[in-house]
Computed example of a mutant assay.
Amino acid sequence: MADQRKSETDRTGVDDDEMRPSLPATSWAVLGLLSFGEELSGYDLKKWSDWSLRFFYWSPSFSQIYGELKRLERVGYVSSRMVAQETGSRDKRVYRMTDEGLAAVRTWAREAPVEPPVLKHGVMLRLWLGHLLEPEQMRDVLGRHREYAERMRRRAAADAEGSRDKEEWAYPALTLKWAERYYASERDLADAMLADIEQLASGGDGTARP
């Protein structure tokens, strides 16, 4: 074990534990938003996360964003400064990634373990309890879920189209394409489940239940 740690230190010049403090994935997500090379305010980060991250990972509140920024600044991955605004407006604090932050998020993106996604599907949880509901209630739940999935699919498709000509957003645009496909599959799954409910309500063999 000691030899392995020595090898890692020799390769990077820095002990891995010293180079990368233990941070939650949400910290890396916020740091990643700053990796596109811009100086951003907390408000900007909220807009950027709603434009991209929310489709596949996280839709943070302002308090969560500022909490992560404080954490990142404490470990030296982010620096901030106050920027004067027009007369009558409050000055704002903007954040920029440090060289240490760029190196750390690059290492995390390259070396973090590939973890399975955690699926918490509220609609399926309610369908699981379908024996406590009437078929019409489940049709309503699935119908509303279908509408949501289609709305998100269209939004992801529009955002992907809007970023198509921005070279620096090439990879975020790919995740938006993934989101478009994902929500299309959720829409189609809702349609399939509605058909399954119809079959179940008819007794499974086309004969209506009493």
Results as ranks from 00 to 15, higher is better:
L53A: 02
R20W: 03
P24Q: 11
G37C: 13
G32W: 01
W48P: 04
S22K: 15
D50F: 11
E18I: 09
S27F: 01
S49A: 05
W48L: 11
L34A: 04
L23A: 07
A29R: 08
P21N: 06
F36L: 10
E39S: 09
S22R: 12
D44N: 14
E38Y: 08
W48T: 00
Y43F: 11
S41N: 13
E18H: 12
D50A: 04
T12G: 05
M19G: 15
S27Q: 06
D16C: 13
D17K: 13
W28D: 09
G32R: 10
D16K: 13
V30E: 00
K46A: 01
G37I: 13
F36V: 14
L33P: 01
L23K: 03
L31Q: 05
K47H: 15
L34D: 00
D50T: 02
A25V: 10
S41A: 14
R20S: 07
S49W: 04
V14G: 12
S27M: 10
G42E: 06
W51S: 05
V30R: 01
A29L: 15
G32F: 01
T12Q: 03
K46T: 04
L33I: 12
P21W: 04
S49R: 05
D16E: 08
S41F: 08
L53R: 00
G13P: 09
V30W: 00
K47A: 12
P24T: 12
V30A: 02
L31G: 05
P24I: 08
L40T: 03
P21H: 09
P21Q: 03
K47Q: 08
L53F: 01
E18K: 14
S41V: 12
T26P: 02
W51T: 06
E18G: 13
S27Y: 00
W28A: 05
E39M: 15
D44Q: 11
P24A: 09
G42W: 02
S41R: 01
W48C: 07
P24C: 08
R54E: 03
L40P: 11
T26M: 02
V30P: 04
D50R: 10
T26E: 00
S27L: 11
L23C: 07
A25P: 12
R20F: 03
F36Y: 13
K46W: 01
G13R: 07
S22L: 11
L33Y: 01
G42C: 14
L53N: 00
L33A: 12
E39Q: 06
E38K: 06
L45D: 00
V30Q: 04
S27H: 04
G37T: 11
V30N: 01
D50Y: 09
G37L: 04
G42N: 15
T26S: 03
G37D: 00
L45H: 08
T12C: 14
K46D: 00
T12P: 05
G13H: 10
D17W: 05
M19C: 15
S27W: 04
G13Q: 10
W51G: 03
T12W: 02
D50I: 01
G42Y: 01
M19R: 13
D44K: 02
G13N: 09
L31V: 11
L40W: 04
S41P: 13
A25C: 14
G42R: 08
W28K: 09
A29N: 03
D44G: 12
G42P: 14
A29W: 00
A25R: 08
